[in-house]
Computed example of a mutant assay.
Amino acid sequence: MSPKKRRVLQAILYEVFAIAFVGPILSLIFDKSPASTFGLAFVLSSVALAWNYVFNALFERWESRQTVKGRSFMRRLIHGTGFEGGLVIMLVPVMAYWLDISALSAFVANLGLFVFFFIYAIVFTWAFDRVFGLPASAEKHGDTKL
């Protein structure tokens, strides 16, 4: 699979599962209608989808220049931290506006989502790599073991 197709597929699958989780949880936590929170989840997902594509392209460019190949647990932690950290910065203002809450409340809510998504990003990427194989940037001379 080409790197571009791989990134698009990965990002779309990641966000489909994210919307299914975030919509109902936000509805329960903020006592908002599911229609509103699924709308918010879709907006958050759209921002995350764009960020996912950009971040993974940048990460794979960085990764391809590393002398040690493969995706160790530490590299997966770096990946998850970078992706989710950037996302928190972008999503707090959107959540505050949409839910009509303070930036601080949105930040706290986003931290709760961050805990879930930090683990989710690592597990999802690992599972995606298991199903679709490692990208060329991470392969060890044809070795596809994870």
Rank of each mutant, 00 (worst) to 15 (best):
A106Q: 02
D31L: 10
L99N: 10
F59I: 07
P34C: 05
F117T: 14
L49R: 03
L26D: 14
V68T: 14
S27E: 05
F132R: 13
V43N: 10
F107K: 03
A106R: 02
A121R: 05
F118K: 10
L134N: 05
F30D: 02
F114M: 14
L49T: 09
F124A: 00
R76D: 07
F38R: 12
W126P: 00
A109R: 11
N52D: 09
M74Y: 12
L104A: 11
W51I: 02
V123T: 03
I89V: 09
V94M: 10
N56S: 11
S64Q: 15
A41C: 07
P135E: 01
I122Q: 02
I78M: 05
L28V: 12
L49A: 11
M95T: 15
G133E: 04
W126E: 01
R75N: 01
I89K: 04
G82Q: 00
T81H: 02
A41T: 13
I122H: 04
P34T: 10
G112N: 15
F128Q: 05
R75P: 00
Y97H: 12
F38E: 06
F124E: 01
A41L: 08
R71N: 08
D31M: 15
R130V: 06
V115C: 15
R76P: 00
R71V: 09
A136K: 15
W126C: 00
G82D: 01
L77M: 10
V115E: 13
N110F: 04
F117I: 14
L77H: 06
A48R: 03
I78N: 09
F59S: 05
L113V: 10
H79M: 01
F124D: 01
T125G: 04
F118S: 09
A121I: 07
G112F: 12
L77W: 03
F38Q: 07
P34D: 05
G82S: 02
F42H: 06
L40T: 13
F83H: 00
K140T: 01
S33R: 14
I119L: 09
V88D: 01
F38S: 11
D129A: 04
I101G: 12
S102M: 13
A138E: 05
S45C: 05
L49Q: 04
F128E: 01
V47Q: 12
R71Y: 15
Y53V: 09
L91H: 03
F42K: 11
M95S: 13
I89P: 02
D31F: 12
I89S: 06
F73T: 05
L87K: 04
V131G: 05
H79K: 01
G39Q: 07
F107T: 10
I122M: 07
R61V: 15
F132G: 04
G112R: 15
Y120W: 08
E139C: 11
E60K: 07
V88E: 05
G142M: 12
A136F: 14
M74D: 12
S27T: 10
A50N: 08
G85T: 02
G112Q: 11
F132L: 13
G82M: 00
F116A: 10
L58D: 03
L113Y: 09
P34K: 11
R65V: 06
G85K: 04
D31R: 15
F83E: 01
A127P: 01
E63P: 06
D100M: 13
W51H: 03
I78E: 04
W98S: 15
A48G: 13
L104T: 10
F59W: 07
R75W: 02
F116N: 02
S72I: 08
G80L: 06
I119N: 10
F83D: 00
